[in-house]
């Protein structure tokens, strides 16, 4: 599902409500008692600026009980240059930070992805890499709710576009 809408239309807020990060201001939200495991990539990258890309992802592996050996393949998949992997995240470009944040999607397969402006900061190659990742996820039966001002790549399967209005 591709959520679109003007600035302030509530795309990010809706995504946060869906993730369970915030309560809806009005209306009723019914939760599945057995919710799907989800990946969340918000506006902020969830990367500590003092740690390197590898150290950040290692932490998330350890926190989620996953093997830390998955970090290198995940960064390979997102094509983060080798020279950028061991540098403090604060020294990376916006696109490199975004690639590192998106690498979390590869660390562990989860059926639901909630992605808030995932293309922010990505260059043409980065967008193509992300499109490949999303396409694989959807073809594998996964669900993704994506907010983006940019059009999503056209070859993605079964994309529904919703526009939020104020």
């Amino acid at each position: 599902m591709h959520l679109r809408g003007a600035n302030g239309a509530g795309k990010s807020s809706l995504l946060e409500v869906l993730a369970g990060l915030r309560r809806p201001a009005a209306g009723v939200l019914r939760r599945n008692p057995d919710p799907l495991p989800l990946h969340w990539v918000g506006h902020r990258n969830a990367l500590n600026p003092h740690l390197s890309a590898v150290e950040n992802l290692r932490f998330w592996c350890e926190f989620n009980g996953q093997a830390v050996q998955r970090v290198a393949p995940a960064l390979d998949r997102l094509a983060l240059p080798a020279g950028a992997r061991r540098r403090a995240v604060r020294t990376l470009s916006a696109g490199q930070k975004r690639r590192t944040a998106l690498a979390r999607l590869v660390l562990a397969p989860r059926p639901l992805w909630l992605l808030d402006e995932p293309l922010d900061g990505l260059d043409v190659d980065g967008i193509a890499t992300f499109a490949g990742l999303l396409s694989e996820h959807l073809k594998g039966g996964g669900i993704a709710v994506v907010t983006s001002h940019q059009a999503l790549p056209k070859d993605l399967p079964a994309v529904r576009e919703w526009t939020l209005q104020r």
Binding site: A19, L21, W40, R44, L47
Partner: peptide, 8 residues
């Protein structure tokens, strides 16, 4: 930095 969202 958004870490708290992921921790939640």
């Amino acid at each position: 930095d958004g870490t708290l969202e992921q921790l939640c």
